[in-house]
Design a protein around this nucleic acid. Structure first.
Lengths: 126, 126, 126, 126
DNA sequence: GTGGTCTAGACCACA
DNA sequence: GTGGTCTAGACCACG
């Protein structure tokens, strides 16, 4: 489970970190039930501030993917299916402008879905 | 071609504006060759800062969707197919974390693609 | 009398434990005069720290619901009516911000009291 | 609209601040549509840190009571009725242990509801 | 000037 | 030792 942060990216560090952990989960490198390093430990490992890690953990907790246990660290949890509609909505609002642009560029539905499929599979691929 | 901006959204106004114009193009409400209002004009119409409109126009120009005419407004252009791979890459980096989260949440490829299809079709739908 | 602790909750374990014992009393599963296990015993049973159990017992003693017997465990006591105003005050300070939020959300007094009634009855219900 | 913070309280400052704003809304001293002072301004006024105010604002945003507008300050919003069930659940979990304790103390349903009513009315009272 | 992000360092409650 | 809270000060994106 390697995490590399891009300081030059316009994506906040905490978001990059959050996404990296989600990716680890998706690939099976991390599993629900696993303990994540403590906030301070991971911050030290990554060379970033405690609060930045904490914010990433808070996001994951909000998304129902992580449980923060006071005095005992953080543990990955099995995502609650109740969070699915929320996720679907989030995906929708993110995807909408891209779908529109695809149509501007005369991209057909098949080509658009090809790209989507590709991304879905690439999670476990590269 | 109505544009409504959500000031409470965490999406920057200039991006919302840019997306709205792209949406207009996708739906056929706007067409390549059409003139867009001048920066000052549109800013006044929407009640926002000139700088914000300018930034949206710059993005569209960067994406090859708009030509800026000195002092005479802006004209929508037919998107250059050469921009397609750039767009595909952008879609990929945006979609990747969402695809990962979908897998975390035990969403199958079919369900994921359903959501994508839905968004693609909704561009011309509602 | 089963006690289940939620390690992921933001409510401290000692408080959960304290609340669980109070709930047992309210339901009649525990009665004044009953002996509670010793601190060590209960800690071992629940798989938690002795200190945590001790703190829960101290709270109950403070509330006048428990008498600590040196070395011989603890015994539930009939609550002193003198503790009622203290409890009423505690309920008030806890409820005040929620009542305020209820009004913000345009909830009427009847609806608010419905929720309160529901909670009161649910103690003996589920 | 006066806000007094209790540094000795075990309730976090940001929560006290959040509750104070909710109370202001409930009493009608603040109304949806009103602008709140900027994060920095309010922090300076109260003599606390910017981040503490920010956290209170974030909570209110999460609860659908406040909109944070980048570069333009914060504005109170009309609460979304969709947030009501969430609130009801929150009220329930908070009230449950208190209802249990009330029964321990041999308090009847009528007396319990009296206290609840009192709190609800006191919002607009004192 | 506003909120958003990041860093740094401190103290406390919890287990 | 852990997470939770608070402070302080900095830089950036946005409008």
């Amino acid at each position: 489970m390697f995490i590399t942060l891009d300081y030059a990216s316009d994506i906040p560090l905490y978001q990059q970190l959050r996404d990296a952990i989600v990716l680890g989960l998706a690939r099976g490198e991390l599993k629900p039930g696993d303990d994540l390093p403590s906030v301070r430990q991971l911050a030290a490992d990554l060379g970033i501030n405690m609060h930045t890690v904490n914010r990433a953990y808070e996001m994951l907790k909000q998304d129902g993917l992580l449980a923060l246990l006071r005095g005992r660290g953080a543990r990955l949890t099995t995502p609650d299916p109740a969070g699915l509609p929320v996720f679907a909505r989030r995906l929708g609002t993110t995807l909408a402008p891209l779908a529109a642009e695809a149509r501007c560029r005369a991209m057909g539905e098949a080509d658009f879905l090809d790209l989507c499929t590709q991304q879905f599979r690439m999670v476990k691929g590269s």
